[in-house]
């Protein structure tokens, strides 16, 4: 179990959220939804120690950050340097770096792992391509392949389905389901409300704090969406579903 307890993040004295507590269960795909600027990415970055925060984040009753190598984080790709001289294969291979020592180069075993992961996301034929020569969906699958190689217990993806084709979305969803089967803790920040019920076992609705959290069937309600987003949006979404 991944427990966030009384987490507070503040930029310039105004808190993004205060005393936020939430839990993520193993063997579940948990979605995090909320309007723009609600603090979704901020929550994840605070949990990962990438930004300053106060509060505790425990994984199986020990601080999450003492288990750094057991976390795979697929961040949003907007800041990525697509001209960097690195191949698809080498990007996936970096997933083995957390388990290598300084001075140790990736060997045969690591190369096999990277190759297998690329096959799992159907990109084996693109292994030697420079990463700028891929579509958005292919690129996202490369980073999911890297997460496969990391073989982590906690996997966090920040808006993995933004700007990608349906084929890639389905391929990534299939990998998430395999991870669920393996009992991993999977957290997905999600932007598209339409597929929430279809994709997520558990749901966290965020808007500068927790609006609601729990099994998707219980949490994904017109009242909660209305509170976090707007009543107009919730009406459109839930009226359509009723019809």
């Amino acid at each position: 179990m991944l427990n966030v307890h009384q987490l507070t993040v503040a930029y310039e004295a105004t808190p993004v959220f205060k005393d936020l507590s939430v839990a993520f269960a193993p063997g579940k795909i948990t979605g995090i939804i909320g309007p723009n600027g609600a603090g979704k990415s901020t929550l994840i970055k605070a949990m990962l120690g990438l930004i300053k925060s106060s509060g505790t984040v425990n994984y199986n009753k020990q601080p999450l950050l003492t288990h750094r190598k057991q976390i795979a984080y697929v961040e949003q790709r907007k800041d990525l340097d697509l001209t960097f001289p690195i191949s698809v294969f080498d990007v996936v291979l970096t997933g083995t770096y957390p388990h290598l020592r300084v001075l140790q180069s990736p060997g045969k075993l690591q190369r096999q792992q990277a190759h297998a992961a690329l096959q799992q996301v159907n990109l084996a034929e693109f292994a030697q391509r420079q990463i700028g020569n891929l579509s958005g969906g292919q690129l996202q699958r490369v980073f999911v392949a890297r997460a496969i190689v990391q073989n982590a217990d906690v996997i966090i993806l920040d808006e993995p389905f933004v700007g990608i084709d349906m084929h890639s979305e389905a391929a990534i969803m299939a990998i998430l389901q395999q991870w669920r089967q393996a009992g991993k803790t999977i957290i997905v920040i999600h932007h598209d409300l339409n597929k929430v019920s279809q994709y997520f076992d558990d749901l966290v609705i965020l808007n500068h704090g927790i609006v609601a959290a729990g099994p998707t069937a219980e949490v994904y309600t017109q009242a909660n969406i209305s509170q976090a987003f707007s009543s107009d949006l919730s009406q459109v979404l839930f009226t359509e579903e009723a019809q």
Binding site: L48, L50, R68, K69, I71, Y73, E75, L80, D81, F84, I86, V91, T94, Y97, P98
Partner: peptide, 9 residues
């Protein structure tokens, strides 16, 4: 290439 990844682990 990807400093955030390195920081995360």
């Amino acid at each position: 290439f990807d400093p955030t990844f390195a920081r995360t682990y």
